[in-house]
Design a protein around this nucleic acid. Structure first.
Lengths: 229, 229, 229, 229
DNA sequence: AATGAATGAGTTTTCATTCAT
DNA sequence: TATGAATGAAAACTCATTCAT
């Protein structure tokens, strides 16, 4: 009140005003809560109430930020895709051999997943352990980008003229499925995962690295909560 | 119950009591409706009401057959798993080389999927094109079985001593992801899919078969409904 | 902040303190917005939010001027009644014949309505074309005043000893209903309306003026908005 | 229960089954509650909750019968309009003089209103005594019908060639406004009201019947509630 | 068994009002 | 004094489940 009307247009610079800050904070509070809740209950079963409850905010506040569960979800997936897709694409464009193409794809992906587990964690139904993977439009766009990169690589004779669609599918399938295994080991070992997947794609099962001992982490549904908190 | 699913368009052969017949019929009506609804809305978002609505039956009737959405879901799962898991396991037990192990796994899987698309079709949210894959407990049990089979194969020196968990994950990832691509081509070509996946796992990308031209079928979300009906 | 919303089109005339001016302006902004909103949604369905939205002001600002929807409404009412009631009363007090009493009542009323359409415009629900007429306490007080004037006229033998309540009702009914017809013709013709109503009250249907051609104006619900803006 | 499965398709006849009966009853419970609530709070301010509360039914039950407040309201107004419009039209078609046309219109209308007060009772805001009249599409259709009947009467030389729109407006205005006065007297006297209005329209104020003594009923807002109950 | 309306707890959403900036 | 985000009470609506027929 004593700070007067405050002409905040100019001197603002990096200050951002407390209001601004709170808004950003609250938005993140909601997004994080939503990530947790989706992971715990699955997207379909999650309710806006569940998200609000996982937040210190009031119910009405949710609607100041998002119109619906769908909209929160959009926001989450956009964050993820925007972060990882350019990285993957750049790496692949630099590849001059099959080895590089394959290895950088897997390495970059697994490292991202290991860093940002929350966003990739496969959703599981607490009740029945049903596993749900949602590939949002942005993620699917990432698949398309991979396919295009494969086509480009084929035209540069980096790859033999294989079906780019099937190869993309195989890479995606392995990436997601192996990611999940990786997230179950402790500590997460993106390098081992990448080496495994890369070796498989370059030489088949007979070229795979010999068994690495890994411990099953004790992670269970119960722990998801604390993870995300 | 012993009179089986019974396509009831045909003359009632062995004449199970009409009562009996209706019971079986209604059960199947509900299960089919549930499959559709789960596919369209996802398991979490689907409601018992949705399932009933997709049925000519009254709401109360649902509860004569199943206690809840969960129970219908269990029933669906069991049908699928009971059908495919033993086949996969048997085939793999007969394998005496890596080649056989890998190829029979993919071939059997893709053939089943091509036959029984409804149950494997990846769920898509009509609204936002979100892709959802649900791995039910039974399906996950199938994954475990695969891992055990891999371990057995390793101990028989069929495989080198790789990480069975990661190999299982890779096989599963490729199987599901490639299945989906396969379901988009018309006619479905399980052999091509199996050949691709098998070659990849045996020799890596450089061993992959050369490009097969395939046509995108016109399949879209819109058709899911009629598919399943 | 002190540079204000300020309708700065015209030179600021008499230079009331800028502060002062803004206050009056904002008050009018709110009142006008409220008139619109009440007209569009009806009083009961209108919300303070609706009013604020129809304003360039912030929600909190509303409460600097009015405590509630009720209070704005009172203010609107008062404006209207303060404008028209004294005029009607004065005219009628000057009447020395039935003819004068009736004709001045209708003429004054229709002229006011034609001038200040916004406040008399019958409310219509855009959605369902429902017509809503609100007679506010002030308006009803105007009715009472009319009845008293009728009683006074009867006691002065201007009128035969009719039921003043029923006569008042008839005058009011015709005044409002014919007003509305008048507002639908373009240009508004308060004289024709007054002549019609006066003739009816003085001689019945057989004394009515012969048909006047009138054009339906293109006015529709859609235009209410722009009218009031 | 002892009546067994009861093949109710045939022997049903006039029986209608208890279920049927309950449905009709509940529908009426809701409609009556809605009439009360609209009368007490005004249409806009009334909520579905208010209607449900005025009913012995559960909240969900409301939605088995009507989708929204709007829909209940539609049902109410349809009931009214369907009841009164044909009667008015028939009477007017039989009229062979101005006198008959006017008198039957008013008489029929006032009698109906006196009989079915609930549906015509002008809505008042408990809080601020605001009067609200809603002319629904059906009611407006009744206005149009009157205008057409007037046009027909003019072409039959029953009426002089007056503006049918204005005459309709005047009749409607007087009918509604006088109705309301009538409802305030006790006992309701539709004949007096009709005589008054008819005399006014046939001969103007100088032809009006001499004052009838009438008592103001003690009706106040507070009593509306019990009235409608 | 089948039916389908009733139930009421739970979810979604809106809104008046407050209050820190 | 203006702003507009936060609040939480209340309204709107949905749904699994029961139960009379």
């Amino acid at each position: 009140m004593d700070s007067a009307p405050m002409r905040n247009d100019l001197p603002r610079a990096a200050a951002a005003g407390k209001r601004e800050q709170t808004k950003v904070l609250n938005r993140q509070l909601i997004l994080n809560a939503a990530r947790q809740v989706f992971a715990e209950l699955g997207y379909g079963a999650a309710t806006v109430r569940d998200i609000i409850r996982a937040t210190p905010l009031a119910s009405g506040t949710f609607y100041n930020y998002f119109k619906s569960k769908e909209e929160v979800y959009q926001a989450i997936r956009d964050e993820v895709a925007l972060a990882i897709r350019p990285r993957l694409h750049d790496e692949r464009m630099k590849a001059s051999t099959v080895e590089e193409f394959i290895s950088c794809t897997f390495r970059t992906f697994f490292e991202y997943v290991a860093d940002d587990r929350m966003n990739f964690r496969t959703i599981r139904h607490a009740a029945d352990n049903t596993r749900v993977r949602m590939d949002t439009p942005e993620v699917i766009a990432g698949f398309e980008e991979l396919r295009e990169d494969i086509e480009r690589a084929i035209s540069k004779n980096l790859f033999p003229p294989v079906d780019p669609d099937l190869l993309m599918a195989a890479i995606v399938g392995v990436a997601f499925e192996v990611s999940e295994r990786m997230l179950k080991t402790s500590p997460h070992d993106p390098k081992a995962a990448a080496d495994f997947a890369t070796a498989l794609f370059l030489g088949g099962v007979r070229a795979l690295p010999e068994m690495q001992h890994h411990e099953e982490s004790g992670e269970s549904n119960g722990e998801l909560k604390s993870d995300a908190a």
